[in-house]
Design a protein around this nucleic acid. Structure first.
Length: 915
DNA sequence: CTTAACATGCAGA
DNA sequence: CTCTTCTGCATGTTAAG
């Protein structure tokens, strides 16, 4: 067996970066030469560096695995072996060979479509995509090593003559619709995997097929060598009947053949007679017929695999690519023989990382999987090794199940480096808008919003936030996404985020019928006489929904009826036509009278798949708290069209509580508590204002960092002195003129609020207490300050006035509970930062009082842990991200205020703060 | 101990 | 110069009941 070193660090990285010739049409290439070009082109790029990093992480995983392996005892292994054998025999008993599963895959799909529509491309190496990324390449290009998922600029290095055609998804979708119509004739429940690929269960079709007259399997050979006429030019509405009309007369008209069957070399059971192609009743014949019809209809070829389950069918479809098919006999013996030599990487679900890990164990082929199952069961998770066991036995899903409901929806964009705040917020909004549009199309609302960021070094981050209720509009999405973004910006500030990708995702979808009773009642309370909140979430679900067996929209928008009776299959229609023609021949050789009945349009029979009342549980969401305190609740005044903010008294045009709460957060977070121009409804503000706001926060952050530094110095003071100063020790260094209150003068020194010293706070207007700088730029570093009798001076208009701080014991601070010296209310926190904020706010009130006269002070707003402080809450405690990796910080939400207003201020211990 | 939420990574087309 | 986009699933961590 290979050692870790060679297999995981050597070719491990190659398997990540280098050519993956796993694909069809890439046999016998000069791998070394191609890999050298790829490496030379990639080396040194940020992408490359990131790939290296990721590979090292994989190598570490492998190393851990190998260590684990080394510790496995013989006893453990034999126990595992017994378990494996037990499960194996269970699985073997349940083996189902009765189904005939087909995997159909168009050959080089996008490239083939483009070549079909532009014959000039036919003999050229070409690929579809951009300079940044290719979707696929034609077989000519594959000879150069150019393949899907390769960036265009590298492909150009490999093949300078490569023609790169941009994606044209609408066209591919149209073709996809065409081939899906054919799939549906063989299995109305077929499972589309992507535009060009699908699984079919043709077991039932074959049962029917065996009963058919030969003529049903006869199809006209239609050589399209002249061009693209015919198929494309038929108008949509009549396509189906046209197809049948084109086809049916030819079922019975014998005319000499001129063109040979394209791509149908191995027709032993059937044969071409005239320009007719006759297909038999067996699975291979049915699939050949299907591929034939696809080619007739689209001028594109497909490959297919036939096997008793999906996993094997998928492998088989690759076997004779392009334009070929492979049937694996439905016997255990044939399957086991087929599996033996199969490289594990060929199996769907085993990607480059898993291949790498298995490779470290010497497992490259499926036969090895079976041999090492006991070991694998000890080294991998249960789901993983069960998957391996299934593969090694050639087992897979033998029943095709259409994907259930969609679980998430997202949009993301890659761009050149973006560091500008304004641009970032603007883009974020754009993404939200796009997403909202997509959500609207499917009438979806979700509770979880996830922001995805990738920086210029290709490091990816996701940040999620779950609301108590589902949202869908641009503004609602943006309200959340923007906060997530802001939090991330704040986290790295004063450095800007240097992004290369941003994405927004919505998940946790809620049924549109979900009434969310609790939510309604709260909103109802807030909107006296207002309308039912649930009316908002009822997005035009007009169709009565009663039938579970309704249609499911597939990815490409093709919908296939499931009720069976509603749609007559292609063959039934052909059969009917045949009978009709026969009858015509017998009775009246006159003209054809009635048109064929066309099958009902897919849309007409479609109903909302999500209509079923599947999600009726009540939502007792944790964050579902309208932010209010006893004193504030009196401010709630109902408004017909929205909710009134208790802080700014403006009407917020939303009934989504989560959005409303965010508004309140914003209001409360306003640095001056409504003293200045109040920030308008946040949603209405544009990106530039947001950016400005963040910019201000950045400045604050700079200051905070300085404070942090000063704090470190402060920590060098002895504890008793800190106790003395305790209440407020606000360090700043010079050039900053802002402080939270705007009351402290900046003197290039450490300031100590006078209130901490039981002095009249209003005095602050004339100066702060400052500790003069010594020769050491760190004001608290000088030996003079280490004394218990701290030397300080008042910076007043008269100049510095020396005085001494009171001794610790003279101060009335006792224990962890802090009493505000301004309002005399004991604060429910030990967190100095929080407390300082509170004092700041109180001071502001007091100053207001001084300036505006009595009546302007409202101590009810100086609630415990003033909201403005909450944003700060995590800063003092936020430990350095561990291991350089941004680990989750106790799920700190972007707006902790909601929680804290309900739960009260977070109780952060002073010990923790000082530690 | 279970469950929910979040973050990250793998995989596939 | 220049390495996508969208989705689902697995897994690990943490907090809360």
């Amino acid at each position: 067996m290979e050692t870790v070193e060679t297999s995981s660090t050597g070719d491990g990285f190659l398997s990540r970066m280098a050519l993956n010739d796993n694909k069809a049409g890439m046999e016998g290439l000069d791998r070394d030469k191609i890999n050298k070009i790829i490496m030379d082109t990639s080396k040194g790029s940020r992408f490359y560096e990131n790939e290296l990093k990721k590979q090292q992480q994989v190598n570490q995983r492998i190393e851990k695995m190998m260590q684990h392996k080394a510790n496995i005892t013989e006893q453990q292994l034999s126990k595992a072996q017994a378990q494996v054998e037990k499960l194996t025999s269970d699985l073997e008993r349940g083996r189902d060979l009765s189904r005939v599963i087909v995997h159909v895959d168009m050959d080089a799909f996008y490239a083939a479509v483009e070549m079909r529509d532009c014959p000039d491309l036919k003999d050229k190496p070409m690929a579809v995509g951009t300079m940044s990324m290719l979707s696929t390449s034609n077989y000519h290009a594959r000879k150069f090593g150019v393949r899907a998922a390769m960036p265009g600029f590298i492909a150009k290095k490999l093949c300078p003559n490569l023609v790169i055609v941009p994606n044209n998804f609408d066209k591919y979708k149209a073709v996809s619709t065409e081939i899906r119509e054919i799939f549906a004739d063989y299995d109305p429940h077929f499972l589309p995997v992507s535009l060009d690929e699908a699984y079919l269960d043709i077991t039932e079709h074959l049962d029917q097929r065996r009963l058919w007259p030969d003529a049903l399997g006869t199809h006209r050979l239609d050589s399209h060598s002249t061009g693209t006429d015919g198929v494309e030019k038929q108008d949509e509405g009549s396509k189906i009947s046209v197809e049948v009309e084109n086809l049916s007369p030819l079922l019975f008209e014998e005319s000499p053949s001129s063109s040979p069957s394209p791509g149908l070399q191995d027709s032993s059971v059937c044969g071409a007679r005239g320009d007719m192609e006759v297909f038999g009743a067996c699975a291979e014949e049915a699939v050949r017929e299907m591929r034939f019809r696809i080619e007739q209809k689209t001028l594109l070829t497909a490959s297919a695999g036939i096997a008793p389950n999906m996993m094997l069918a998928k492998v088989c479809s690759d076997r004779n690519k392009p334009n070929g098919q492979y049937k694996l006999p439905s016997t255990r013996q044939a399957i086991m023989a087929f599996i033996q030599d199969l490289p594990v990487r060929k199996v769907s679900g085993i990607g480059k990382v898993t291949e790498n890990m298995l490779g470290a164990l010497g497992i490259t082929k499926c036969v090895h999987l079976g041999q090492e199952m006991a070991l694998l069961s000890l080294l991998f998770s249960e789901t993983s090794w069960h998957h391996f066991l299934h593969i090694s036995l050639g087992l897979g899903s033998s029943h095709i199940q259409r994907d259930g409901e969609r679980k998430s929806m997202s949009t993301e964009r890659t761009f050149g480096e973006m560091s500008n705040l304004e641009e970032q917020f603007s883009l974020c909004r754009e993404l939200c808008q796009d997403l909202a549009l997509d959500l609207q199309k499917e009438a979806l609302k979700g509770k979880t919003v996830t922001l995805k960021l990738k920086n210029v070094n290709f490091e990816v981050k996701t940040r999620a936030w779950t609301l108590p209720c589902a949202i869908a509009s641009t503004e609602e999405l943006f309200a959340v996404a923007k906060d997530l973004l802001k939090t991330e910006i704040d986290n790295v500030s004063p450095q800007p985020l240097r992004l290369r990708l941003m994405g927004v995702r919505v998940s946790s979808f809620v049924s549109v019928d979900d009434k969310k009773p609790l939510q309604k009642s709260i909103v109802g309370f807030l909107q006296q006489g207002g309308r039912d909140s649930s009316s908002l979430s009822q997005i035009s679900s007009h169709q009565p929904v009663k039938d579970n067996q309704t249609t499911v929209p597939s990815q490409g928008g093709v919908e296939v009826g499931r009720t069976g009776e509603q749609q007559r299959s292609f063959f039934q229609r052909v059969h009917a036509e045949r009978l009709r023609l026969q009858a015509e021949r017998e009775d009246s050789p006159g003209g054809v009278g009635n048109r064929l009945e066309t099958r009902p349009g897919p849309a007409s029979s479609a109903t909302d798949p999500r209509g079923g009342d599947t999600l009726t549980k009540t939502h007792s969401a944790p964050g579902q708290t309208t932010s209010t305190t006893g004193s504030a609740s009196s401010c709630w005044s109902p408004e017909p069209d929205g909710l009134t903010c208790p802080v700014c008294f403006r009407t917020v045009n939303t009934t989504v509580l989560a959005v409303f709460n965010k508004h309140i957060d914003q209001c409360l977070n306003g640095p001056t508590m409504g003293l200045n121009n109040h920030p308008d409804m946040e949603l209405e503000r544009d990106s530039s204002i947001l950016a400005e706001e963040v910019e201000n926060e950045r400045k604050e952050k700079v200051q905070n960092e300085r404070e942090q530094e000063a704090e470190n110095n402060r920590n060098r003071l002895n504890r008793s002195m800190l106790d003395t100063v305790g209440l407020r020790l606000d360090c700043s260094t010079g050039d900053h003129t802002e402080s939270t209150t705007g009351l402290l003068y900046e003197t290039g020194t450490a300031n100590i609020s006078l209130n901490a010293l039981d002095l009249n706070p209003v005095c602050l207007n004339s100066g702060g207490v400052s500790i003069p700088r010594g020769p050491d730029p760190n004001p608290l570093n000088g030996s003079a300050h280490r004394d218990t009798g701290l030397q300080a001076c008042l910076v007043s208009p008269e100049g510095p006035q020396p005085f001494s701080l009171p001794r610790p014991e003279s101060h009335n601070w006792e224990g962890p509970t802090l009493t505000c010296p301004v309002c005399q209310v004991t604060q429910d926190t030990n967190d100095l930062t929080l407390f300082n904020r509170h004092v700041d706010l109180c001071l502001n009130q007091e100053v207001l009082h001084e300036l505006r006269g009595p009546g302007s002070v409202d101590h009810t707003t100086t609630i415990n842990a003033p909201p403005a402080a909450q944003k700060e809450r995590k800063h003092p405690l936020q430990t350095v991200p561990q291991k350089g990796k941004s680990r989750r910080r106790g799920s700190s939400p972007p707006h902790p205020s909601k929680k804290s207003r309900v739960q009260g201020a977070a109780r952060n211990t002073i010990d923790k703060f000082f530690r």
